Amino acid sequence: MTVVPDDNLMTLICDVCGDSVTATACVLPDAEVVWTLVAEHGWSGSPFATGPHRCPHCSLLPPTRPGQSSADMHGPGGVLGIDHLDDATVVTVSGDIDLATGDALRAALREAADADATVLVDLSRVPTIDSTGLGLLVRAHLDARERGLTLGLAAPSRFIRTVLHTMRLDGVFPIFDSREDALERMARPALSAAPASGPER
């Protein structure tokens, strides 16, 4: 469902039940970005105006509904593993990062940060991310920075790169093309502070 703009207001419509909420639009780098509107009202779904978006009630329901194929949702996500290496802790994630997988990812990122090493989130098996997942990564980045650590992202999909670029977060996270490249480059202090590659356009 597309968010409907009206002057300085935006209306968010739930794809499941049709419920809606209208609020003042926030000034963002791109008019198509509705991440703040989604997050502030407890909704889940795409950070962009084009859905899917789900109200707080429907966010707790199973993702499938009549007329929706399994291909529409990419499949459930989850944390595949946490690998404590010499120079970094790698959190490997699979499937979509959304409200359903938020608790598992939050716990994994907390465990990784507690290791007091560089944190790398392997996104090579993650097709999409919603506002919930994006918020978790931003929070984990801030927590890591407070500890004097670096949190990097490995092999994000084109969709995730677009989200990060649109939100102007691609300059916040070090972003790498692969897990191997990330581990090699993040071990070098001079390179750990800057993204290794820009977003695809």
Score class of each variant (00 low, 15 high):
V79Q: 04
A108Q: 00
C14H: 00
D177Y: 13
P189Y: 08
D98P: 08
A112L: 02
H74R: 09
D170A: 07
G77H: 05
S131T: 10
H141V: 00
D7G: 13
D103H: 10
V34Y: 04
T132C: 11
S124T: 08
D19A: 15
D83T: 07
E184Q: 09
R110I: 09
G75Y: 06
P66W: 03
V3Q: 08
G198F: 12
T128W: 14
I97A: 06
E200H: 07
L120D: 03
T92L: 07
L9E: 11
D96E: 15
V90M: 06
S178C: 03
P127G: 01
T166Q: 09
P5F: 05
V38Q: 06
S131N: 06
R110E: 15
T89L: 06
L136H: 04
A140R: 00
D96R: 15
M167A: 14
A144V: 01
A112I: 02
R139H: 14
V33M: 11
G81M: 00
G78H: 05
L123V: 03
V163G: 02
A194H: 13
P5D: 03
P29C: 01
R188A: 05
V27K: 13
S94W: 10
L99H: 15
G171I: 02
A113T: 08
R168K: 14
L134G: 08
E200P: 07
R65N: 09
A187G: 09
D96V: 15
S94V: 14
P66Y: 01
L136I: 01
G135F: 05
D143E: 09
D87R: 15
L169G: 05
A144N: 04
A117C: 14
L137Q: 00
T24L: 11
G75E: 05
L149P: 02
L9H: 10
E111G: 07
D6L: 11
L183A: 06
T24Y: 08
S197I: 10
W35C: 11
G198V: 10
G135W: 04
S69R: 14
L153N: 01
T24I: 09
A193P: 08
H41D: 08
H57I: 15
D7A: 15
L109H: 00
R168F: 12
T89M: 06
T162Q: 14
A194W: 11
R158N: 15
A144M: 04
T150L: 07
A107G: 12
L60M: 11
V163R: 03
R106D: 13
S46F: 00
P199I: 09
D177F: 13
A194R: 14
G102L: 07
R147N: 02
S197Y: 08
V121Q: 00
A115M: 10
D87I: 12
S70N: 08
R54V: 11
V90G: 06
T92K: 12
W35H: 14
D86C: 12
R145H: 12
D170S: 08
S69N: 13
V4K: 09
G18Y: 04
T24E: 12
S59L: 06
P127L: 05
P56R: 03
S178R: 04
T128K: 12
V79A: 01
C58M: 05
G67S: 03
D130H: 04
G148P: 00
L61R: 14
